[in-house]
Write a protein that binds this DNA or RNA. Structure first.
Length: 557
RNA sequence: CUCCCCAUAGUUCAAUGGAUAGAACAAAUCACUCCUAAGGAUUAGAUCCCUUUUCGAAUAAGGGUGGGGAGGCCA
């Protein structure tokens, strides 16, 4: 509908002001229903270059505007807004479109290339190291990342979900030492316990399982514990496998699936690290100092240079990050989005600098980042700071166990990523209208209830006469439904899934209001079918929207 | 000290540079013989401060104040 109006407007605008660009014409959704369905500020924009009064220009534009079967009237308002009011044909059209292809409604093709092929995009998220259970922060990353993946897919992209983890390095050594200590009944209060060791109770569980020679299945392999306390290599492998396995279980519980797992160690094994190192040296961006090899990231805007190869001969995480992102590029991902906690923001500059120094044509803004801020978990009016098992933080599993997958996902995705989030467990647990998840899901279930009670053939609803839908609740609801495709596109472009969550809350509110005002299952067959069509269309939108958030849409509650 | 994010109603959060800044909770009021009251209707209440750009700013720019995060040869 928006595209239709733009088509009407563009030739008119060009005839008045030939230099105008198609994408510079703004067509907005006015906040107030009195200002119509769409509004353009075109006349105000042209007023300055043409040195004319905006209201006069608006009158001229309207005069030249061709007739449309969907437009009821066009008015000038305020300083020079041109407002479009759609007629009942447009409303009927919208509902029929939704009912015609329910699963696809709201999708668009903005992710396709010129040949109409889906473009590849990779989204990396969670990427937790296997040193402990996933915490709430990972949960926020998981909820946002997965929702972004769904949104991109909905917008025509070919999406790969990827999880990267460090399976070697200093932190894994720490993990190994911690399990080793616990195998010998050394607990964190003991002075010989590793100083930077992991202190959670889960380390004890791993140690016990190791001593019992347990086996763990992880990523298609089975790892068997040797049970030998001095076999540090076995402890390492078993600990990593245990924690990876546990994280996978948590992700399953959270209904999140990854397409690819990449191990940091694989970058060493396949020579990618060495290749990157050679290339950076060859390009002249390195120097030696204090027996370490440094990269001149300051050449690319960093505030200090960074070590790639340590004085002890080992590599830093930084060089593998660069190698990993080169690897993404070489796999054909022209677009990569990294979803991370904002506490890692300092890596952005370094990774991008490293990629620039390779001089292989990678854009300066590669990869894109979505950073989410910290979460405070509240319960009974107090901040919850730690879990029994993990010791120092609240785990994702604790949250899911307590409030359920749907509520957890909704609350973690419903806020703008770059603002801090307060997760109120008591609110997430309530099962009434205080809780937006239940409010939205209940709207969906309520519609299912009405349709069940009607017990008619749903297919009959797809092409009924809708002219009788004229009450204010009906007009408001139809208008809301018609906005869905624009919400989907906007959320995808801005990488902002929370806008979908807000939209759904509004949409559910419009429906509940309608429900209480109007009885659907009435004697008059024409009215009944028209109303059922409208609520069926609403149900489709709610379902598709909830899908984009990774939240289920129940038929019954 | 430097860098990044944030600041909107009593509270938790919205708002593609647009028109009268939206919800929800909390507060006050109303209606259950009615497709699920897990819902609805009504009332009251907010853009941290200063300056600039603009026809027009919560939004952009500059400067403050306050909160969080990052500044390792850790990730």
């Amino acid at each position: 509908m928006k595209a239709h109006l733009l088509q009407l407007l563009l030739p008119v605008a060009q005839s008045i002001y030939p230099e105008i660009l198609a994408n510079s014409i703004q067509l907005d959704r006015p906040k107030s229903i009195e200002h119509g369905d769409f509004s353009t500020n075109l006349a105000m924009m042209l007023a300055k270059p043409l040195k004319k009064n905006p209201r006069e220009l608006a009158a001229l534009i309207i005069e030249k505007l061709p007739a449309s079967t969907f437009v009821e009237k066009v008015e000038i308002a305020g300083a020079g807004f041109i407002n479009f009011y759609l007629n009942e044909k447009a409303r009927t059209f919208i509902i029929h479109e939704i009912l015609k292809n329910p699963d696809a409604y709201g999708q668009n093709t903005s992710g396709l290339d010129e040949k109409g092929k889906p473009q590849k995009v990779q989204i990396e998220f969670v990427s937790a190291n296997p040193t402990g259970p996933l915490h709430v922060g990972h949960g926020r990353g998981a909820a946002i990342g997965d929702s972004l993946a769904r949104l991109l897919k909905f917008n025509g992209w070919d999406v790969t979900r990827e999880f990267y983890y460090n399976d070697a390095g200093a932190q894994i050594d720490n993990l190994t030492k911690s399990v080793h200590a616990r195998c010998q009944n050394i607990d964190p209060s003991d002075p010989v316990f590793p100083e930077d060791g992991y202190r959670g109770e889960y380390i004890v569980e791993i140690a016990n399982a190791f001593l019992n020679k347990s086996s763990i299945k992880c990523e298609g392999k089975t790892v068997i514990a040797s049970g030998n306390i001095n076999d540090l290599e076995s402890i390492r492998q078993f600990s990593v496998a245990s924690l990876r396995h546990e994280q996978d279980q948590d992700l399953n519980l959270f209904q999140i699936k990854f397409d690819v797992f990449t191990l940091e160690s694989s970058l060493y094994q396949n020579g990618q690290i060495e290749k990157v190192l050679v290339s950076l040296v060859k390009n002249g961006f390195t120097y030696e100092e204090d027996h370490a090899l440094w990269l001149k990231t300051t050449d690319f805007g960093d505030d200090k240079n960074r070590v790639m190869k340590k004085s002890d001969g080992g590599y830093t995480y930084f060089i593998s990050d660069v190698a990993y992102h080169l690897n993404k590029w070489e796999r054909g991902f022209k677009r990569v989005i990294n979803e991370q906690g904002s506490d890692h923001h300092s890596t952005i500059m370094r990774v991008r600098a490293g990629l620039q120094a390779l001089k292989v044509g990678i854009p300066k803004t590669y990869p894109e980042y979505v950073l989410h801020q910290m979460i405070t978990v509240m319960k009974g009016g107090e901040e919850v700071k730690l879990s029994k098992r993990a010791g120092s933080y609240v785990t994702l599993k604790d949250l899911i166990d307590e409030v359920g997958c749907d509520a957890t996902r909704y609350f973690l995705v419903a806020r703008k990523p770059d603002s801090q989030l307060i997760f109120d467990i008591d609110l997430a647990k309530t099962q009434n209208s205080d809780n937006p998840v239940y409010y939205i899901q209940y709207a969906h279930a309520r519609i299912a209830g009405v349709l069940n009670q009607w017990a008619g053939d749903i297919n009959k609803l797809s092409n009924v006469n809708l002219d009788c839908l004229k009450s204010s609740q009906e007009l408001i609801l139809i208008k809301r439904l018609s906005e869905f495709p624009e919400i989907v596109l906007h959320a995808c472009i801005e990488l902002a899934p929370h806008t979908v969550a807000n939209y759904l809350k509004d949409c559910a509110a419009d429906f509940h209001s309608y429900y209480n005002d109007t009885k659907f299952l009435v004697e008059n067959e024409v009215e009944k079918l028209a109303r059922l069509s409208l609520i069926k269309a609403t149900q489709i939108i709610l379902k598709n929207g909830l899908y984009l958030l990774g939240v289920n849409a129940p038929e019954k509650m």
